[in-house]
Design a protein around this nucleic acid. Sequence first.
DNA 1: ATAAAATGTTCGCTATTCGAACAAACGCGG
DNA 2: CCGCGTTTGTTCGAATAGCGAACATTTTAT
Lengths: 256, 256
Amino acid sequence: MANTGSAQTGEYVAGLEKGLAVIEAFGARHPRLTISEAARLAELSRASARRCLLTLQKLGYAEYDGRYFRLTPRALRLGYAYVMSTPLPRVVQPVLETLSERTHESASVAILDAAEIVFIARSTTRRSLSAGIAVGTRLSAYGTATGRVLLSNLTDAALRALIRETAPTKLTPKTVTDTPSLLSEIRNARTQGYAISDEELELGLRSIAVPIRNAVGDMVAAMSLSVQTARMGRAEMVEQLLPALETARRMISAML
Amino acid sequence: MANTGSAQTGEYVAGLEKGLAVIEAFGARHPRLTISEAARLAELSRASARRCLLTLQKLGYAEYDGRYFRLTPRALRLGYAYVMSTPLPRVVQPVLETLSERTHESASVAILDAAEIVFIARSTTRRSLSAGIAVGTRLSAYGTATGRVLLSNLTDAALRALIRETAPTKLTPKTVTDTPSLLSEIRNARTQGYAISDEELELGLRSIAVPIRNAVGDMVAAMSLSVQTARMGRAEMVEQLLPALETARRMISAML
DNA sequence: ATAAAATGTTCGCTATTCGAACAAACGCGG
DNA sequence: CCGCGTTTGTTCGAATAGCGAACATTTTAT
């Protein structure tokens, strides 16, 4: 088989690549997979997919009922190997709770993974909008305040490539999707230090986000507050919520 | 190399096993790893560990600074392949928020992974104890109410084996660690449908948990409320919080 | 500065993993 | 219900990916 991953022979494990592709084939649309389905989604031969699935089953990451494979909770260890190796979720959680309680709005922290943001911590109050967003939820970066902040950390060249690959579509009639406007929004985030998404993700939802930086100044996450548009205007949100976010992010940066 | 995982040849991918062992070697104690450290923790040769780490780097799951490897946010996809393939976190989050707000206590849902519980959803109020527990946090099952509920789903034989392997130690002076007492607590959870941990995980912390079952009656998670011992006695907790938990778990079961 | 220990890298060899071919199961039309 | 085509799952001879012992390099200790 062709050596797909390394310029030099002997520095790559093709079976690992295939197995990880099979794991990633599982998801909301595919909570369970047959051998053929896994092969198709992971772009492997059925024989390869079968060996990977049987290996995952032997190791306890998947279970098999004779036809379908499902991932088991042990698979959480793989994702949480990352989470556990960074202090961020534990550090930010209490700060988010304070922030959410004080502002009476939903507070979140997310990181960038390719063209998506992934929520790693969240706090809501009873009156605030949960919107079914839980830790682990992924959203396209381009339509969210958080995503724009995170994307502002990329070079323009990387941004252009990502936008091209993503081919943004309108999530609401207000979603900005054309490249020059998106680049402009992201550049604004870069210069003013915060970003806003105004009903671009969901009608009635307005968000503001700021970057979270570590001790050496690298952006490691973004933190946001979200409000219902009926409760707060855009200017008010900047005036009232941005200071709270900046206080919170200073607390967090001090702990990283 | 010995075929370690399958009775028949040709049904196992040793490289996948090794790569997953390397991923799991990362964690709170090991946020970054050298080739030798990864080899030692994953019980592999340095050459094997090196190939796995380079493969993870090529695929975007890890980064390398010339000496140390670190996992990247892409590794989250592996854990969330499981989370995304089960609706539980999204379903329970709003219910937990209501439960937490109504009872003024911390509410959590966790699942069992071997001898540990993993928190998959959580809600706290300002007045409640956060205790640094975020989604993804793992605790030994034996010392927690949630763990006892989840363990009650195992057979006595499986329980004995697990307790033997775990070799429970006292987390506080009140932690139950001897096997007959532990088995008794877990059997109580089985018969009465709830479990309590009374300052066994942490002095000053008292918890009560109930099982969450799916439509066919299989236990899929456990949900708990935690209080400060100064605020509520054990009997009061059963009287006041158990009904709220049972209402919440019926709501959840109706959605699964 | 030197030696020992630890860590990282190489490459000949062989056992693992490949996928084409075959076997088994399923679905559909008559 | 049967036959045929399609889809899915399994096998095994062959090719090569991945192995680890040996070596190279770096780090640590004296």
